[in-house]
Design a protein around this nucleic acid. Sequence first.
RNA 1: CGGGGCAUGGCGCAGUCCGGCUAGCGCACCUGCUUUGGGAGCAGGGGGUCGCAGGUUCGAAUCCUGCUGCCCCGACCA
Length: 490
Amino acid sequence: MAKELNTREDNYSQWYNDIVIKADLAENSSVRGCMVIKPYGYAIWERMQAALDKMFKDTGHENAYFPLFIPKSFFSKEASHVEGFAKECAVVTHYRLKNDEDGKGIVVDESARLEEELIVRPTSETIIWDTYRNWIQSYRDLPLLINQWANVVRWEMRTRLFLRTTEFLWQEGHTAHATKEEAVAEAEQMLRVYTDFAEEWMAMPVLRGVKSINERFAGAVETYCIEALMQDGKALQAGTSHFLGQNFAKAFDVQFLNKENKLEYVWATSWGVSTRLMGALVMTHSDDNGLVIPPKLAPIQVVIVPIYRNEEQYHAVCDKGREIKQWLEKADIRVKLDDRDTQKPGFKFNEWEFKGVPLRIAIGPRDLEQASVEIARRDTLEKETYKVEGLVEKVRHLLDRIQKNLYQKALDFREQNTFQADTWDEFLELIEKGGFIRAHWDGTPETEQRIKEETKATIRLIPLKGKMEEGKCIYSGNPSKQRVVFARAY
RNA sequence: CGGGGCAUGGCGCAGUCCGGCUAGCGCACCUGCUUUGGGAGCAGGGGGUCGCAGGUUCGAAUCCUGCUGCCCCGACCA
């Protein structure tokens, strides 16, 4: 298994592809733009799901499931929503195939055309709000706090494994509230949840803020987001949370009777993160030796590699390996004993390193004699010999250290790549270097659009609680009250 | 949809310009022996409608025509 990996410096995007494919996270499928998520990659996603799902439940949400197909007419009910998604929808027009009359193959049966075409959901606001109409009558039915784990389809022109695929997996929360304040608070709360997840589980520092009008979700009044900085200096939107106002309630006629017995439209939010987080995870921590997974998300936290010369030694070190595995598992540590007799230790070292396993324990005949093991850290690549006594504590401690170290490294990287620009020339120079750029902007979509056209940089976010600071727009020179964050983005 | 490139065992490629006899190499795979503390060595072995359809020719992976698929770069996007 020769793992030749492009380096980040030589070819960043090839480096990313190599890791995803060679670490067995995912591969391209026979369907253009759609990926197969392989068991190892899916195991990481499952861990993300589990952590997020618990956070959603802890904040009062329940899971439900809505249909994959959405009647076309639903889509046109919210004007800006259609406009936003129309260009990337897969449409089901027929419901039957038949044998080709020329004898070869199968064709669409033209006589089986759907009366109303179905859209494969690119997001579920419309079908969900159509449903909520029947669920909500009174203020007593509110708030309605629902999440769904689902797949969605957006017909992208260019795709990249995890970062942008035609079909992707995600969760979408859809909530209904009696007041505007409550809905805004919900959107902000979920942004907080995403922030905590990114930082505590993924060890990925994020900036929080709101989107400019240009970048806002189609149909939202306000879009909140978390943005992370990748190692090539490009920003990646890692999660979004939307305050939808009464837009969908009005479009789908969802009203409730308030305590004063008056009909009111409900207030809405929606929020989501997707398998794109897998891409973010790869690009935040991995290095030129392969994938690096933070311990909290690693499907295998510790791999034990036995070293031996003959069958007798093989059995002896494997027995010790099994014993250690049991101790660690009792402490809720995820362990794999790689007792394959078909690969050499050196091969296994490289393989598990490439797959990002946080800790590797090697046990050989020498270790048996000295009651020791060799432990190697994936994040620092350091190796050290430890006594078997107290090993569980040591491992637990090291996993914790790795989790923190990965976060700190990523945070340092972001700080080192966050700049301030006060003039257009400065901005032009900095944007070429990559990273986040804090700069003044006059607040108009036109200016943002021009900056995007001239530099490919967009406003990633307007800081939520950013310091107010008088200044002049770097592009137009018009007055500005606050710096916003620019970057080139995925 | 524009601009480039590619299509040859599971994967990565050479061969194509200048047609030639049995289509080759690396990795992976199978068998055996020796190995095993950072990607093992040797020996033997299996596996190919050279993307598809026509054409030229005694003879086509190679030349001609027409298709099809994929990748990369741009416009769109989480």
